[in-house]
Design a protein around this nucleic acid. Structure first.
Lengths: 209, 209
DNA sequence: GTGGTACCGTACCGATCGGTACTGAACTGG
DNA sequence: CCAGTTCAGTACCGATCGGTACGGTACCAC
């Protein structure tokens, strides 16, 4: 496969693509989000994307690659609150942004409830193993970023000395994932916000060894 | 279909069943647990159960019914800690039993990681909708039982007056579901126990307003 | 024994799975 | 214009999906 080094506006030879790949990916993302990797069939996906199977395979490779691309888009779109949260100036603000962001992202009107990173491929058969691994890595990477952020907070005196940043990060992300599961169960935004608020009211939690 | 009113030891006419239905159900439970409803094929299930498709359909009806039976067995087996937790004498003991039970059940050696009730059918396509609904109801029922237990605790003065039992239950179950997701991500038992311990160290959480 | 009944295994069902070969059509560079 | 390239739609691929028809077998009541 030739690498398209110059992928700017310069028109390539041949018939130009007849659909917006980003918009199509957005629709695929929504299907994966609502139905999970295994529950989303090629027919479901391409119908939502408004293109044929052939066009999908030409543009994205295969179902697995499409899923990967959808996860990337999710990370930069509905899941972007995570990266933004990590840039907050204090550990408390990080926790608040993460929890409030989770509540909003998992109950966004017009979008599926819950979190793609949680429900996209939590338990799968053999054909979905790759997707499962992708999301497991996605979750664990996110958790490690939070841990790193808290490590810095401890070093900066922003968190009590002796705080275990890994433990605190795991606790925080657990609540975040719990919110996602509750959202997928149909719990409303206000009730989930109470969960987030409850955690923030008790922040930072005692964690003495 | 005739209802088998007298299903006790009295031998029915015809050739007796050549396998242990309970043991077969246990194996099916494990497959559903690890692969989810949609990810578990009839071939996966029957091979694990050690019986043919015909025997499975004769004994359990169809895949959906088998899943329901597996969920029931899960509730009475690995998930029995929930019912036991609700019988603890204090709200704190309830929370401790629930969290410790979740940690142990989701990281049981020889069993799949995570919780069947969470990962069995969190996001599905149309064919898995029933399974999805079954587990959503399962989770919400469990949550309502915890809320009822906390309502009693408030009435008994076991929790601070003004405590919102629904809110507290949602918070607790969220952490429990979060533990399940983390377990499915491969987080080990010790690390998950820290999550449970962290919550218990901060119990009961402040929930004013 | 004999008839009736339920279990078991094979072999198969239509439908759908993810993925592709092939045929034109639409465009660019020369 | 023409040659070369890429896109799109149809029609199809083998494999597998959940589910079943059917014939043989093992057991019970009588």
């Amino acid at each position: 496969m030739l690498v398209d080094v110059d992928n700017r506006k310069k028109a390539r030879a041949g018939r130009p693509r007849g659909f917006d790949a980003e918009e199509a990916l957005e629709q695929a993302l929504i299907v994966f989000w609502r139905q999970g990797y295994e529950g989303a069939t090629l027919t479901d996906l391409t119908e939502a994307m408004g293109i044929t199977r052939t066009s999908m395979y030409a543009a994205f490779g295969n179902k697995e690659e499409l899923f990967r691309r959808a996860v990337d888009r999710y990370t930069e779109g509905p899941g972007a609150y995570v990266a933004r949260a990590l840039e907050e100036p204090t550990a408390r603000a990080v926790a608040a942004a993460l929890l409030n962001g989770a509540v909003r992202a998992t109950t966004r009107p017009g979008y599926p409830t819950g979190c793609l990173g949680v429900q996209g491929a939590l338990a799968t058969g053999a054909p979905g193993r790759r997707a499962h691994d992708v999301l497991t890595a996605w979750r664990n990477y996110g958790g490690s970023c939070v841990a790193d952020r808290f490590r810095r907070a401890v070093a900066e005196g922003d968190l009590p000395p002796g705080t275990d940043p890994d433990r605190l990060a795991r606790y925080l992300t657990s609540v975040s994932y719990g919110i996602s599961v509750q959202a997928a169960s149909g719990i409303g935004r206000d009730d989930l916000q109470q969960v987030a608020d409850t955690m923030l009211l008790n922040w930072p939690p005692a964690t003495f060894a």
